[in-house]
Design a protein around this nucleic acid. Structure first.
Lengths: 137, 137
DNA sequence: TCTAATTAGGATATTAATATGATAATGTCA
DNA sequence: TGACATTATCATATTAATATCCTAATTAGA
């Protein structure tokens, strides 16, 4: 359902969120803790920074922090930098959109299901993922 | 959500289903109609035959037909030869299972959503996909 | 028996995802 | 200023997905 890369990103942002207030998170530290290849995670962090999810600072004592509160970062904000979670309804059979006159009940059901997936990523936030925090669920 | 290959397989089986009773479907014919590379589709068909979804016969006038009625072929039967639609609940963050004591409400919601996806593929049949046929939806 | 049409399947090419390695740029602090 | 720790970035390697090419096996029919 999610690419490796997107899963890395989710776990990494969660890790950063859990270290808010404890200083910046360094790539090496997070890579060790999460068992993700360092150089690869470095690129994931960079991409998340470019996407406005994280903020980076360079130099000694540099690292990453959340760019905004965990409750304001949806899982879609994270995942969409790497995977496409199609918000736009997409036909099960690969066409961009079903022409309405051939649409059958299956297409409707598929639309329902895939919209639920999209909604999950859109409304769930990093804060929701954190242990003990079970708001807005 | 689905790989290219699995999407090809769905479209191809639907095509074969729509030609039931009209003689065997040849790979070249289906590839042209569906705009899928011939040799690639050839392997997809072959794999579906090995998986008991299609039956093949070789030689002149050979081709493919459904191995059983369209209503007895679930989309999961088709797709699972190529993609893994995880029936087993899988943690959003990549672990095989969430340990229960760290499971939060988000995990529950994700389980709900992903089980709906799995159920869709399991209960929807090729017959449901065919135009005009709108049973069991 | 021969030819043609077809599936079966091996070999290889291309492309995208994942991963690694090396270097440059930046900021901190002695 | 200079050493060092860090992010930024470029270059390359590896692996998996997608695609193409070619030949073998099988069957129908002339």
């Amino acid at each position: 359902m999610l690419s490796n890369t997107a899963e890395y990103a989710l776990r990494a942002v969660l890790y950063v969120a859990q270290h808010e207030g404890l200083g910046l998170v360094r790539v090496n530290e997070a890579a060790d803790a999460l068992d993700i290849p360092k150089n690869y995670l470095s690129k994931v962090f960079h991409e998340l920074a470019r996407g406005g999810v994280l903020e980076s600072s360079r130099g000694q004592h540099g690292g990453f922090r959340l760019a905004r509160p965990a409750g304001k970062i949806s899982l879609l904000n994270i995942v969409s930098r790497f995977d496409q979670i199609s918000e736009r309804r997409r036909c099960l059979l690969g066409k961009d959109r079903c022409s309405d006159h051939t649409a059958c009940l299956v297409h409707e059901r598929w639309k329902d299901v895939s919209e639920q997936v999209a909604t999950f990523f859109r409304v769930t936030t990093v804060a929701d993922l954190m242990d003990g925090v079970s708001s807005a669920a």
